[in-house]
Nucleic acid binder design. Sequence first.
DNA 1: CGGCATCCGGGAAGATACTG
DNA 2: CAGTATCTTCCCGGATGCCG
Lengths: 233, 233
Amino acid sequence: MKLQNITDSENGPSRRRYEDACGTAHALDLIGERWALLVMRELMMGPKRFGDLRADLPGISANVLTQRLEGLEAAGIVVKRQLPPPAAVQVYELTEWGYQSKPIMGALGRWATRSPLHDPTLHLSAVSLMLSFQAMNQPARHKDLTATIGFRLGRESYVLRLEEGAIDATRGDPDGADLVFTGAARAVAAAVYGGVPLATLEAEGALAIAGDHILAERFITFFPLPPKAPQPV
Amino acid sequence: MKLQNITDSENGPSRRRYEDACGTAHALDLIGERWALLVMRELMMGPKRFGDLRADLPGISANVLTQRLEGLEAAGIVVKRQLPPPAAVQVYELTEWGYQSKPIMGALGRWATRSPLHDPTLHLSAVSLMLSFQAMNQPARHKDLTATIGFRLGRESYVLRLEEGAIDATRGDPDGADLVFTGAARAVAAAVYGGVPLATLEAEGALAIAGDHILAERFITFFPLPPKAPQPV
DNA sequence: CGGCATCCGGGAAGATACTG
DNA sequence: CAGTATCTTCCCGGATGCCG
């Protein structure tokens, strides 16, 4: 038992904050530390356990994840909650205010894909893929289409609902969807954002497609990437 | 003269990037380092010199500012430019892509002002004040009003143009504006966001108001802050 | 196993002094 | 004025270990 670990986040004169009244600067005080925004991203589709967060954020270490969750909770962005029995496990969940950052993260992601340095072939989490569909949505491309598309991405499954141009994404079982993709999130991304033909991914065993293949071919054309910014010199 | 300082930003295996295909993660690779976003904020109303950036970002040190500018330039967000003679000084300017982050920063700032921990009485830069008017704009509050309002905030002067609910802000001389505020940016913020009466600020000598006082009293009611998020626990 | 504390090495950030 | 050099401090990342 330790005697003097009051978390020492005692208010020293200025524990490395920007002493700035600007709202944007305060946002950085809240979520500007390393990994903080990505932890929020992983919670954007619903609550998660510590271990799942860790698994979906390759590269984060346990102690940093602990610190970020503490910080986000102290800020009122995340709450630690006990699931009701029989599950009775502890999960972390965004508050209503935390969820309101979703469109901002979407806009930030869309902006950053204009970077010439962006590499879309790296690892991608299941949540990131679902959020990307909403962030990159172009309603005009499918406003006449109503469809349900399922994704089985390792531990997580999602259902995408397209209706009148809007896209709704929820965690849940894809059974009964018009179309179901099974594989890694990055394989789906390769088709949607990388232009890799679905047939190629199926042949490689990277992606399995069940249901309406015509719909699948249409779906992957719905999310055009914005034009790249000019390379610096 | 040093022999071995190739800036050593040689491509080690992964110079502390998130190896993540997600656009938001890439955004953090580009602008997630400390001070980066605030440097961009200070350039949002037009180019600035190194020394002015330093003065408007109290707390940043010269070497960190140098590194951030190098990084932002390498990313294609900022360009270093030589002003034409006779000025012929070096300035830093956002690229077109860099300027496109403006609405994102605005949304981020608006989101963060819901934080119970936000302190609007701290130091505020002139640029932050101008950006806040655009970020917090509620067109319905003044869509019938056409007016020009000037601000003399230390070294910098700005002109705000209100027309049909839109707000346009540019650097420039306030001469001829319907109303001119002269003082520190935080004094204006105290009136607009802090509810401090203009008469009080005038009496204290914190703010001088020239021109249409009625307009001034109306103006400070145009930017309501969003409701606070619940305090954590 | 999930959550959290501890110790340690490397590197980024802060402060200050210095140079062209 | 526009940065660079240097030193210190602190954060991040990784490993280990404790406890429920």
